[in-house]
Structure formats: structure tokens, C-alpha cells
Amino acid sequence: MKNLFNFKPNGVKSILILALGLILIANHASAQEEKQFNFSVALNSDQFFGFYPTFQGSYGFSDKAALTFYGIHWGGGTGANWGNWTEFGLGANFQAGEGLSINPQIGFLGGNLLSSGTRGPAIFGDGIVPNLTVNLLKEKVEGQLYFGYYAPLRDEAPANGTTLSYVHYWLNLGYRASNFFSFGAHYEHLINSGGSNVATSTDVYQWLGPYVQFSKPTGGPFARFSFGTDLVEGNDSFFKLTTGFSF
């Protein structure tokens, strides 16, 4: 009977070479996967939305396109009255030039802010959020444009109640003084754009002011503080603090 474990020296050498090759291929594939996958988390706070953690990630299929996903835990602060409001979305990111990317996404909401104006049950399918983010990052300039439309998917409003919809957008542009420090201007606008029993749209807030940002030069932790005036009559000022980590 042939001994299956009686390898010749050359056979053992071939197997060792093959095993080493497989290990190198696996390590290369793992490294490629790590390069393709990006993820960041952030803790945010402002006087309207309260405290809300966020995350966003992407998986690149090429140098020009990537699958993106994100989530926002709106449930803290003022949002505690919104049925533990949450947002989760998917989209795609496209490189439109050096330092310029365009990221259309669509988000889905759970809670009760849109479907019943906070007066009904917290549900999955509270609303839908088509949104667009444009990012600019060059050696000396950084910026971001965001636009999102928050529309109710269901009408769960009680008698004499209403559904709600919102337009939310912001624009910031800044100067990168170094890899560690940047500063610029931030403008942000939230509009109650309508609902089942809303006759006209109204401005919720309209923020304008400077920001400063600190980032680890090699990537990782970052912190941004924005503050300034609220242009809506009867409002006073705004403040927004964000800190997070990019993996």
C-alpha cells in the first residue's frame, strides 16, 4: 500500500512554495480590501438637533466609483421627542476630478417626525431622504455642499395633526493652513417646506458663521467647531461641535 505521507524532498519543497504563494496572495488581497474600504464615525451636537452620532462608509470598486452607506442617530437631545428618529442610507460616490467627489444617496427614516409631526407612533418608514453631497479637498482648499429633502412616506397624523417635510442644506468652504489646521465659513439652512396640514413653508433656522478644524495629518481623529449668528428673525445664534475618527 502506498504511503500517502512519504513525500519526496522535491515534493515537500513544491508544497512549501505553493503554501507561501497562497499566503502572499491572501495578504495582498486583504491589503487591497483594506484600501477599498473606508469608514468614519462622528459625534455631533448643536442646539436644534441635540446630540447625534453619525457614521459613513464606502467600498471602492475602482479609482472613480464606490458604494457608500451612512447612518444618523437623531434620537438624542431635541430628537428624543421624535420617536427615536434614525436615518440609514445607501448611494454611490464618483470622482469628478482632482479633489472633487459627488455622492448621491437615498436615506430611509424611522420615528414619527415626518409621518405625524411627532404626535403619532414611532414607525419604520417615517420618511425618505434623497440627498446629495459634493466634497472638495485640495492642498490648500476644502469644502462641502449638502442638500437633502426629507419627505414623509406615510400619513399617521392624528385628527387636526399634520405630516411634515423639510429641506436641509449647507455649504462650507475653508482654507487649509496646514495638514493639521484649517478654517473657513459655514452656512446652513433648515426649512419646514410643507405637510398635509401646512399652508406655507417656514424657516426653522439659517446659520452663518466661521469654523475651525483640527485633524491628524496622517488621518484618524478630527474635531470641528462652528458658531455664529442665526439669520431667522427671533432666533439668536448657533453652535455646532463635531469630533470623530476616520479609519
Rank of each mutant, 00 (worst) to 15 (best):
K8R: 15
P9I: 13
G11H: 14
K13E: 08
I17C: 12
I17Q: 12
L20F: 11
L22W: 14
I23F: 10
I23N: 11
L24T: 15
L24P: 07
A26I: 13
N27F: 12
A31I: 13
K35A: 13
K35C: 03
Q36H: 12
S40R: 07
S40F: 05
N44W: 03
N44Q: 14
S45H: 15
D46M: 07
Q47R: 08
Q47Y: 06
F48D: 06
P53R: 04
S58P: 06
Y59W: 14
D63W: 06
L67Y: 11
T68R: 03
F69M: 10
Y70I: 02
G71M: 06
H73I: 03
T78G: 09
G79I: 01
N81G: 12
T86G: 06
E87T: 04
G89P: 02
G91M: 10
N93Q: 15
F94R: 04
F94G: 05
Q95F: 05
A96Q: 03
G97W: 08
E98I: 04
N103Y: 03
G107K: 00
F108M: 10
L109V: 08
G110K: 07
G110D: 05
S116H: 03
T118N: 07
P121L: 06
P121W: 05
P121H: 11
A122D: 12
G125I: 09
D126K: 04
G127S: 10
I128Q: 13
P130K: 01
T133D: 08
V134A: 09
V134T: 09
N135F: 13
L136F: 12
L136D: 03
E139T: 13
K140F: 05
K140D: 07
K140C: 01
V141N: 02
G143I: 05
Y146R: 12
Y149N: 09
E156P: 03
A159E: 04
A159T: 09
A159C: 00
N160F: 11
T162M: 00
T163P: 00
T163E: 00
L164Q: 08
S165Q: 15
Y169R: 06
G174T: 07
G174Y: 02
Y175V: 08
R176V: 01
S178T: 14
F180S: 12
F181L: 13
S182M: 04
S182K: 09
G184P: 01
A185T: 11
Y187F: 12
H189F: 13
L190Q: 12
I191G: 02
I191N: 06
N197V: 00
T200A: 07
D203I: 01
V204M: 04
Y205W: 07
P210K: 10
Y211C: 08
Y211V: 03
Y211L: 04
V212K: 10
Q213C: 04
S215R: 14
P217Y: 00
T218S: 15
G220Q: 06
A223T: 15
T229K: 06
L231K: 01
L231H: 00
V232H: 02
S237G: 11
K240V: 00
L241D: 01
G244K: 09
F245H: 10
S246H: 10
